[in-house]
């Protein structure tokens, strides 16, 4: 074997393994853990307008005034939810505070008396997964004709979206 042929064969022996080891692809593996937690949210647009009874309708035993200027929005990823309402302290004797929540996703219970609802009372039921935006809240304040003057007072009504 001539020295020239020997060098050629030696070069082939060195380069062949390198060609055999060349990579055209590579992979790694990751495990992703995903979970959707229960999400429940209710928000209100603000406070309703003042409910002042300033005049009587002739022949009426009950005076009332309403406000529907506030709204609520809610969303949940749970089924069988409802909205309940409670008040921080009872209304004065001879007066009533009622609230009605509109609902396009559930069943509104109409006007619900929350005058003494220290424990929550249902106002909307049958809510499932989804959201409901800008639904009207209507408050009605009523006073018996026998009730005298009541200076401006306030109560905090809490709406809770729960199961």
């Amino acid at each position: 074997m001539s020295p020239k042929s020997f060098r050629f064969l030696l070069a082939c022996c060195i380069l062949f393994p390198l060609v055999a080891l060349s990579q055209t692809g590579s992979s790694v593996v990751q495990t992703l853990t995903v979970e959707v937690k229960p999400v429940t949210k209710i928000a209100v647009s603000g406070n309703p307008g003042a409910l002042f009874i300033t005049d009587a309708n002739a022949g009426s035993d009950v005076l009332s005034v309403s406000d529907n200027n506030s709204k609520y929005s809610m969303m949940t990823n749970l089924d069988n939810m409802k909205i309940v309402a409670s008040i921080n302290s009872p209304m004065p004797t001879g007066t009533r505070l009622m609230v009605k929540l509109e609902s396009s996703k559930g069943l509104s219970n109409g006007f619900v008396d929350v005058s003494n609802a220290m424990s929550p009372v249902d106002v909307v039921s049958g809510l499932g997964k989804g959201s409901d935006l800008d639904q009207a809240i209507t408050y009605t304040f009523a006073a018996n004709a026998s009730v005298g003057q009541i200076n401006a007072d306030a109560r905090v009504v809490t709406l809770t979206l729960t199961d």
Binding site: P38, T40, K41, P48, S70, V156, V157, T158, L159
Partner: peptide, 27 residues
């Protein structure tokens, strides 16, 4: 959504409050 992604909370109930002002004045 961020709260859930961070795995720090799960809500099964939520509340919002309103202040209702009222009064009666005999005219």
């Amino acid at each position: 959504v961020g709260c859930v992604a961070a795995d720090i909370c799960a809500q099964t109930s939520s509340s919002a409050s309103q202040t209702v002002t009222f009064g009666v004045h005999r005219s």
